[in-house]
Write a protein that binds this DNA or RNA. Structure first.
Lengths: 197, 197
DNA sequence: GTCTATAGTAGGATAGAC
DNA sequence: GTCTATCCTACTATAGAC
């Protein structure tokens, strides 16, 4: 027997999550204190802890949403005809991530936090796993469509190549966050040229 | 006019740095408190702050040493005949890193911290830059030796390929830190098979 | 230089009134 | 559900005696 309607609860959570994302965009995840999320949301500590049980819980919600969008990106591209080559996908994913997250630095902080915080680690592992699976599916489908290979051999190729594609995306994020004056365009063209197809 | 001999000072710093590295190996960088470094070293807070001005200063010293070892690895391999192919280098670097650091998680935490801490960021940027340069030099030399191309074209190839090689190493570190049951051997063989040569 | 003791600070989370 | 006020814990760094 809920004390408020389900609708209300969902709307409030979204409101809080959006405020948190705005705060994270400015200062990253670790450096953003609960006080800042509270201030950004215009609510109070009590109100927020009534909807989320911890800061990690908020991060989890925000990140899950963002990753969901990337999966949707991949599915949309998989439905296109002709499908862009797998190497081209890195660019699309990175564009989407930067657009939504503002700065790739947040991802790096998330990874760092995951090393010690079990809740965040579970999140990061899930994220990485889901994206990897979606990427495998994409590569496999692409090989079937463009090179006409059988589903099983396409699957084999995809499983073997996916590590490098994922690493290319991770490398983009790291370079972008850590190297001042990082030239994203030359990174992406270099990647697209040297990744297998 | 130093109050103690230079030798003594250097030895003490090394002693502290070694203790810090042992502590970092267990719990990573962020999660290791000064109290733990103090306890591990058998010294006191006062003693340590007499030799390092902050915790970040200790991390900087430790990390610089570790990275120096990777550069030495690369130089040693560059002197071998025949030189191992560039794709093979990822494995060597990762082996050395894991041996010295115990866990790749420390690197991930370092990256995360770099996003907000200017001192650590400068360190991470420098590390990445030095390794990248050493890698470029290696790839370039390898193409000259093994494919007999001119130095200038070899340099061009190296500059274009290096991003992907570095990303492969970073991907190894991230997967290793975040994916439970990560199969490092299949990662490395997959990388070696799909990286350009 | 090194020790003990502690100052100083920041941030996540809760209690209790409304 | 939400607010204000505050507790509590954790941790870096310093002060002052030896």
């Amino acid at each position: 027997m809920p004390r408020v309607t389900e609708e209300y609860r969902v709307a409030r959570r979204r409101e809080i999550a959006d405020a948190a994302l705005r705060a994270f965009r400015r200062k990253g995840f670790q450096a953003t204190s609960m006080a800042e999320i509270i201030s950004e949301s215009g609510l109070s500590a009590g109100a927020i802890y009534g909807h989320y049980k911890s800061k990690a819980d908020i991060v989890l919600d925000v990140a899950t949403t963002v990753v969901g969008s990337r999966i949707v990106d991949l599915e949309r591209l998989a439905a296109a005809d002709p499908m862009p080559p797998p190497a081209r996908i890195v660019r699309v994913l990175m564009d989407g991530m930067v657009r939504e997250l503002g700065s790739p630095g947040i991802m790096v902080q998330l990874w760092g936090e995951a090393v010690t915080d079990p809740v965040i680690k579970k999140l990061a592992t899930g994220v990485l796993g889901r994206l990897r699976d979606a990427y495998v599916a994409y590569i496999s489908l692409w090989h079937q469509r463009e090179h006409g290979v059988s589903p099983s051999t396409a699957e084999g190729i995809a499983a073997e190549q996916v590590y490098l594609f994922v690493a290319a995306a991770q490398g983009y994020i790291l370079h972008s966050a850590l190297m001042p004056g990082f030239d994203s365009e030359s990174y992406l063209t270099s990647i697209e040229k040297n990744l297998p197809s």
